[in-house]
């Protein structure tokens, strides 16, 4: 399980990094989303990978066998904040596109 998850994180990181280094704003926003998936999964993975033991207390189940709730709580807020930053970035991107007429990240066309 861990190896699959690690490879997935690695691939998403690579794609994300590649995209945020691209010159088009749309690529950057997509890249950031991919990166945030990778980072969320990574933080989530820090707590260990367990199946079928959600951190929900039920009578008769020992608490120590449950999944670690702390990374989950962190990631939950991270997801919401990630949504907020994506929204903000999208709007900044649109405003910049409206002002400069181009979707290049520097607000002007490529210095070829």
């Amino acid at each position: 399980m861990e190896i699959i998850l690690s490879i997935a994180i690695g691939v998403m990181t690579s794609c994300g990094v590649w995209l945020i280094l691209r010159p088009r704003t749309y690529q950057v926003i997509i890249g950031l989303s991919l990166l945030s998936y990778a980072v969320n999964l990574f933080i989530f993975g820090v707590g260990g990978v367990k199946t079928n033991v959600p951190p929900i207390l039920t009578d008769g189940v020992s608490t120590s066998s449950l999944a670690d709730p702390v990374p989950q709580a962190l990631v939950l807020t991270a997801i919401v904040i990630g949504f907020a930053t994506t929204a903000l970035f999208l709007v900044v991107l649109l405003a910049s596109r409206g002002l400069t007429g181009t979707d290049h990240v520097d607000g002007r066309s490529d210095p070829k």
Partner: peptide
């Protein structure tokens, strides 16, 4: 160059996350 950087980061992340998770 960007591709190399991205791949390096990806491999690094894979490595670290596997280490952390296990």
């Amino acid at each position: 160059r960007d591709l190399a950087l991205a791949v390096a980061c990806g491999i690094g992340m894979t490595f670290i996350s596997y280490a952390v998770m296990t």
